[in-house]
Design a protein around this nucleic acid. Structure first.
Lengths: 237, 237
DNA sequence: TTTATAAACTGCATTTTCGCAGGTTTTTTT
DNA sequence: AAAAAAACCTGCGAAAATGCAGTTTATAAA
């Protein structure tokens, strides 16, 4: 992560899919001036469940998992996010977060306060519409996921989790092969099962020639195979 | 459903939580003029999976279930909606629906075309923000549901489905007691299980004095009991 | 490089869920 | 009001998922 100490302004930022880029030049400058920017190291919390909501976080670069836990202590990955995505926006009147966000790798993240954000919404219709569309799309993804959770076998859920992770984070190894970097436990928290079942499924996929697990990294050899596996469940994501 | 043949204008409409009410007087009049209004009888589809998207539907009065099916023929209830809610909005560029909407009872529903809607968004920031917040809230609910699906037992999922239905549709019997009007099959499609398991759970809840099933209608005797049952799963909805 | 620690894999018994089948009740139709 | 159809309930065997335990492999620390 270069230039750790220097704030990247919205004007010079190259994350072009960031919603803030939809704001007018004057508002872009205004947001840029008042935004706060922090580089979170891998594994660190950006915000935690129960902490008060002061604004929204925009990922300039990096990867983030949005987590939620239940009383029993079990954790659940609710969503993954990377460059240009927004996390932690709750609107006005929501005192505390019921989710937390953790950096999956060193991530540069911009914070915009609720007041500034609301002002920007009022004055930049394209920005607001873009954010609205983002929520609309995320809602559709989440509803699809609920449906899948309700009907898939454990193995299918693991396949879905692997595919979702790749489609969302778009990681590649040194040879350009698609791969993912989540632990078995994290995949389990995403798929709604446990680490043992993930291991079992991964072994099956390996034997079928779909993947090649190499330590931390799971290389995806046949994306098509995964889509085939999930073909009974209509269009993906 | 009175005045079946007469269109209720936005100005005289008493569904005050409808997002359209956030538009300026001139835009309210414009939307009112160009909107289409239909009374759908119970059980009828408002739009179906695979049909093209031309706009969005606002529920003036009634109840709607949003459904999604998989190749195997199984159906899933993705969301319930009632007065003032919006269904079927997909943004620009989404050719067809991947969900369908069915009236749970006779429902008066207003249709607004994509073009008019987008124009209204551009010129009515409060309206757009309101819709954005709606999506944000629905996303949170859906994510909570995913989490629950991943960790709850079948019985807890049924309890959750009953509570969600009541909180969303707010039905009452002639004595003012909270109750719900979904079939076992529909509750199963909402809870992510099958009708048999719903029957079993309902019997358990009856024996525990939480509910009193009377044919079509399930009376809820102890809302508190349901909240207690689900208390390990943090804040509800 | 060696050692310590954490993560991953796999077998097995237990528990949970599923889904058919058959009987009962409720609702709708005639 | 009677008949037909649909929805609902429940027992039971089959299938799936869980979670523990022990082993192996990979990663981090000394």
């Amino acid at each position: 992560m270069p230039n750790r100490g220097i704030k990247i302004s919205c004007e010079e930022c190259t994350t072009f899919n960031c919603f803030v880029k939809q704001a007018s030049p004057e508002w872009l400058a205004k947001i840029s001036q008042f935004k706060n920017q922090v580089v979170y190291p891998k594994g660190q919390y950006i915000f935690t469940e129960g902490s008060p909501v002061f604004g929204a976080y925009f990922i300039l670069s990096g990867q983030v998992k949005v987590v939620s836990s239940v009383f029993s202590g079990k954790q659940n990955i609710v969503r993954l996010a990377s460059d240009g995505h927004m996390v932690g926006h709750k609107g006005i009147g929501h005192e505390t977060y019921n989710i937390g966000a953790v950096a999956l790798q060193d991530s540069r993240i911009c914070f915009v306060s609720n007041e500034l954000l609301y002002d920007a919404f009022l004055n930049n219709p394209h920005f607001t519409i873009e954010v609205m569309m983002f929520y609309s799309k995320e809602l559709r993804k989440s509803e699809t996921r609920s449906k899948y959770f309700a009907q898939m076998t454990t193995e299918e859920k693991v396949a879905y989790a692997i595919l979702y992770t790749y489609e969302t984070l778009q990681d590649h190894d040194e040879d350009g092969l698609p791969c993912i970097f989540l632990s078995r436990q994290e995949l389990a928290e995403l798929a709604g099962t446990n680490a043992e079942q993930v291991s079992r499924s991964i072994t099956t996929f390996k034997n079928d020639g779909l993947i090649s697990p190499e330590g931390r990294c799971v290389k995806i050899l046949q994306l098509k195979g995964f889509h085939q596996l999930l073909s009974p469940y209509d269009q993906f994501i």
